[in-house]
């Protein structure tokens, strides 16, 4: 939680797209920007990049007003995936309300996925967040490529963790909104228990999700991606 102001009736949340370098975090944001209605979201801000590699972060804000008048702003960030930008990752991760871990489905990226997830665990601990209670979803991106880890394998690896896993191709645009929607839903559950969103602000989960995730009509791109 970046900010919560009861008097000004304002809440600013932070969701973070984490993962190894080149796994498609920025592409996820670009697709959200593309596939979601302009109404209810801000502009995608891409901070200076070099050779298409994120060195600071990208930001896509979303807005929602609860029936009570509480203004909710959800800022979705990407972190730089390259190992050397760990300090920046930590900075972006601070006070996160939810994390989407974007993994690279290609066989050769297995080790990078593992290292990055382990780095996520370390950094969450360092910034004082508990990975067991933090809303977390995993997305296996690049499903459109050959030579990728099978869904069965992914299922077997993650089943025991209870973490929702999605298959996606951010480049083609599928699975991106589903991943985001689940992350938003998980985030709501946690917020509701702390801030009584439904009871005090008349905002239930479906309204929260629907308010933040508004697909453009008839894009049809969400059909192939889905939860494993």
């Amino acid at each position: 939680m970046i900010e919560y102001d009861d008097i000004e009736r304002k809440m600013v949340l932070k969701l973070v797209y984490y993962g190894p370098a080149m796994s498609g975090k920025t592409t996820n944001l670009l697709q959200l920007h593309e596939q979601l209605q302009r109404n209810g979201r801000g502009d995608l801000m891409v901070l200076d990049t070099r050779d298409d590699r994120t060195i600071f972060f990208d930001l896509l804000p979303f807005f929602l007003v609860a029936p009570s008048g509480l203004k909710i702003k959800v800022k979705v960030y990407t972190v730089p995936g390259q190992v050397k930008h760990d300090a920046t990752r930590k900075a972006v991760l601070q006070r996160a309300d939810g994390v989407a871990f974007i993994a690279d489905s290609q066989h050769r990226e297995r080790a990078s996925n593992v290292n990055s997830f382990s780095n996520l665990e370390d950094n969450l601990a360092l910034v004082g967040l508990d990975i067991d209670t933090l809303p977390l979803v995993v997305q296996y991106n690049k499903r459109d490529l050959p030579d990728i880890v099978s869904e069965e394998e992914i299922h077997n690896s993650w089943q025991s963790t209870g973490i929702p896993v999605f298959c996606a191709s951010a480049l083609k645009g599928w699975g991106v909104v589903e991943t985001f929607r689940r992350l938003v839903a998980l985030t709501y559950a946690r917020l509701d228990s702390r801030f009584l969103l439904e009871e005090r602000h008349g905002l239930d989960r479906d309204a929260f999700v629907a308010g933040l995730v508004r697909p453009r009509a008839a894009t049809g791109v969400g059909e192939r991606g889905g939860e494993v």
């Binding site: 801000m45 600071f56 300090a87 920046t88």
Partner: peptide
């Protein structure tokens, strides 16, 4: 406004990273 915001964000995160790296 947008360019100032970007500049501030990069400067702030840069400062933060530098400070953190320095602390480390």
């Amino acid at each position: 406004i947008t360019s100032n915001l970007k500049r501030m964000l990069t400067t702030e995160i840069h400062t933060r990273v530098i400070n953190q790296s320095y602390d480390e």
